[in-house]
Simulated scan of single mutants.
Amino acid sequence: MNPANDDQHGLTGREAVEATAAVWLSLRDRGMTAAETEAFVRWLQESPEHAAVFEELQQTWRDFDQLATLLRPGAAPDPDTLAPRRRRRFARLPLVSLAAAAGLALLALGIWEWRGPQHFAETPVGAFQKIDLPDGSVAQLNTDSAIDVDMRGNERRVRIVRGEIDFAVRKDRAHPFIVSAGRVEVRAVGTAFNVRARDARVEVLVSEGLVQVCDAVKRQPLLPPAAGTGEPAYLAVGDRAVISAPPPAAAEPVAVQVQRVSGEQLRRALAWQERRLEFDDTPLGEVVAEFNRYNRVKLVVTDAQLAARPFSGTFRTDGYEALVALLQHSFGVTVVRQGDAIQLAPR
């Protein structure tokens, strides 16, 4: 099933194609998996219009990048930047073969860059950044994260390119605050929530107020209506939504699991904002994965029993050496160092 061709959600054919193309652009900028790449090529092959819409939308973002140069102090105006351009009309485009559409896919994957390498805000591995957004909201970027921001019109939009970001949203009912991560949209007015995007999975954790999670392609809420009222359902304080969001053309539906977390669990989940990692009976394999997010030196656990062993403790995000020393001297773990990797094995 291709969600872009589903006409049951109030979208015209053109609107559905544009919505799907926008999600593909977001996924491509984040970096596609092999399965997503295959699905993307199939989507382009379905219709010449798909490739044309994708190209036009990407060109629009290129134009925005050029216009951004006009805002830099001392920038020399370029008359070509504001020169009128002939708008493409798909009805006049010559029909192209499926092979040509596949060729456009390869160009998109290998050559084109959506909005270029620069983003509104970006952190490398091990770094953090707290920034004020143009609307007065605040975003805190965790390690290896990037966002783009668009505050034009009646909506305040932030696109997560990769990583994890915590938002404190300034209240403005006339201008909804919308965070997109691949196929998932999180909508709020004035609230605080954390979003982590990784591959085809998005996690949303609410620490203040209410938020709504939606499918960006189908333009509909992901949570069923509230029982008895039929009103839209929201995530509240202490709710964590784990969303499996396959690529737009995939047959698998978007799946959502909502969990309630305690105040202590909420505090631990957000401890990264204070440069800490806190674990409570967490499998060692997950502990290692968290440390690897923040450090160039990678910890490796190949033994399944050791990886499943529960572990508790509090560390600095860059404190992998303290973890290794504790495991070696108190848990009887063998440590082997090889370049930028540290292998952990049972004795």
Rank of each mutant, 00 (worst) to 15 (best):
L109H: 06
L106C: 06
L109N: 05
L70K: 02
L141R: 06
G126L: 03
A76Q: 15
E122A: 12
A105E: 00
V125N: 00
L98F: 01
D63N: 14
V96Q: 00
W61F: 13
Q118L: 15
R85F: 03
L133E: 01
R87P: 04
L67C: 05
P79V: 04
G126N: 05
D65V: 13
A121N: 04
F128D: 04
D132W: 10
L133G: 03
E122L: 14
V138Q: 07
L109F: 07
A127D: 13
Q66E: 13
R89H: 12
R89K: 08
A105T: 00
Q59E: 14
E122D: 15
D80E: 14
A105C: 04
G74M: 02
L93M: 10
A108N: 11
L133Q: 03
R92N: 09
L82K: 01
A75Q: 14
L107W: 11
S137F: 01
P77K: 03
K130H: 08
R88E: 11
A76L: 13
F120N: 11
R88K: 13
V138E: 07
T123K: 03
R72S: 06
F64G: 11
R87L: 14
W61E: 14
L95Q: 10
L67N: 02
G126P: 04
R89M: 05
G74K: 05
F90K: 09
R62N: 09
R115F: 04
R62S: 10
A100T: 12
R115D: 12
P134R: 10
A83N: 08
P79T: 10
A75T: 14
D65S: 13
A102Y: 00
L95N: 08
V138I: 13
T60C: 09
V125T: 12
H119W: 06
S97C: 05
T69M: 13
G126A: 08
S137L: 05
Q118T: 15
R72H: 10
T60P: 04
A105K: 01
V138H: 03
Q59L: 14
T60K: 14
D63P: 03
A105R: 02
T60I: 14
Q129T: 09
A91S: 12
H119K: 10
S97P: 04
L98C: 03
R115C: 04
G110D: 09
T81M: 02
Q59P: 05
L106P: 04
